[in-house]
Design a protein around this nucleic acid. Sequence first.
DNA 1: CTGAAAGCGCTAACAC
DNA 2: GTGTTAGCGCTTTCAG
Lengths: 344, 344
Amino acid sequence: MTTMAKKITINDVADAAGVSVTTVSLVLSGKGRISEATGLRVNEAIEKLGFVRNRQAASLRGGQSGVIGLIVRDLCNPFYAEMTAGLTDELEKQGKLLFLTQSGAKGQHMQRCFETLVAQGVDGVIIAGAAGQGAELRELAEQKNLPLVFASRASYLDEADIIRPDNMQAAQLVTEHLIKRGHQRIAWIGGRGSSLTRAERLGGYCSTLLKFGLPFHSEWIIECESSQKQAADAITTLLHHNPTITAVLCHNSTIAMGAWFGLLRAGRQSGEGSLDSYYDRHVALAAFAEVMDDELDDLPLTWVSTPAREIGRSAGQRILARAKNGDDEARNQIMPARLVLRSS
Amino acid sequence: MTTMAKKITINDVADAAGVSVTTVSLVLSGKGRISEATGLRVNEAIEKLGFVRNRQAASLRGGQSGVIGLIVRDLCNPFYAEMTAGLTDELEKQGKLLFLTQSGAKGQHMQRCFETLVAQGVDGVIIAGAAGQGAELRELAEQKNLPLVFASRASYLDEADIIRPDNMQAAQLVTEHLIKRGHQRIAWIGGRGSSLTRAERLGGYCSTLLKFGLPFHSEWIIECESSQKQAADAITTLLHHNPTITAVLCHNSTIAMGAWFGLLRAGRQSGEGSLDSYYDRHVALAAFAEVMDDELDDLPLTWVSTPAREIGRSAGQRILARAKNGDDEARNQIMPARLVLRSS
DNA sequence: CTGAAAGCGCTAACAC
DNA sequence: GTGTTAGCGCTTTCAG
């Protein structure tokens, strides 16, 4: 603690530059037409004094705070972490800032978070993982006349302004890919029955099978925790009882890793080769990936990705658009998945 | 967009309750002695009007904003994600809020982030992953008279107010554990040579070996990316060339998973049993874990954890303490690791 | 093109 | 206990 550095305000700058505060403010925001000379003088003074504009005061008077609030269910979940990273990137790029709050796994603190953010004067709120409180929140936001955007992993019917992955299309994409590679007996491993994301993906998987006139067996759909060990065991059992299966869809990267080790153990390594040469020996693996996982680079599998980061970015653009224009345009934005092929 | 709800201020509340703004303010902050009756009346009015206090205005006048800024290197890194989660938890518990910014992997945006946070009037800044810019930042903060706390994964010599894991102690802990279980030939797998965290851990590992008069072989220390495949290959090669090794320390959970599969493949499964019965057959595995990883539950290994979440929490407490008291007390806080035993 | 002055919503002296 | 009043630092009419 050297010098109790007195806070520099635009008044000080105005004095130093020999102009009025209005002029300084104008220079700061680049609004009114300021003569080159004055502008220069003001900027010099700013530089010299090390002035930083107090945004709180600015927004108190002006209106927009340049701050967006995020309520995220659980930051440690890689999907949300990645989404949040994408969001801050986008916001910072636009010169905005983010308030981070966590609603808790079951959304216990949702209400409190929302209130806090409102009190801070945010220009909009993004909810990542609504935990079924969509309707109330939307009402609250409307009351306060505050832009609200949802970013989710699956669709919630009662919410309107939402950005989410197209889980069904993702599943269709990867299923169709496997079919086109000649696979006719495609199984599914991973996810809990209660997962909405999984349900949507299963929809895409089943519908694609139907579309190609392929058989659908509910015994080929294995529920399983996201654990490599469980996945390895699951795939082993599955193939033991259903040796004709030639391809397996994995609900996420952990499952995929586990499945791969399971295959290794069973001597039926995954591979992308044509069926003719691998029939009855190799089983092809494909997986869903919400975040890029370096681990997957080592595996000979094809995966379909719905970049969480992109969802974060879009959510950022969206909330800013809504905060700027009084109202909004597009709603219910669905982010398509991309197929990433592997040979290895 | 139903009604352009006019913003409610304490003036409205004061009117509605038939008191002055001071009284309302006092009730809000619970400071002055307010009579039971008035307090009740004010709160009723607040409730009825749906008033939310504008914190920007409050902090503009009062001083403290109740907001802390975080500059994190990369949110997608599980360590930082967990740390950030712990931090927001702590702050929210204390009624504070967090601004989240990302400095980028190489700290490219550090300066800009810092400026932005200052402009927003934060009460303090936490830096997670300083990327060697500690000194400049500390100077900047001192200039602005702003509390600054570092949260790191390893020690940076030029930074003072820092909270970090005790990597050396962690390594000592786990190494000593292995030795006490009878292991005398302990190898190391994982991490890049450029990692400071790894260097500190290696220090603890080596010094413990020395302390117990055990041999140290540099060939037993394998550098390796955090990939299961590479870890599996590395441990296989290692044991092939050095079959007498009885235990392996893994730099993180991915390495541990990979090592375990490598052992499986080689038929030398990890186990915690006494050496007598497993000698020359089983190899014991131990690992460092910065975040709890469910995957590890499946593995028969002992690990030592430095909870990233705790570091976040401590950083939160610390910055708040510094923001409250003009100055600080403890510095360079080192978070000890905890040994978690497994039998399985 | 630039300046004077009126607040944004709230808090903190200081009165009563 | 409660009311009056003067700002916090900035933007924004409205005059020059």
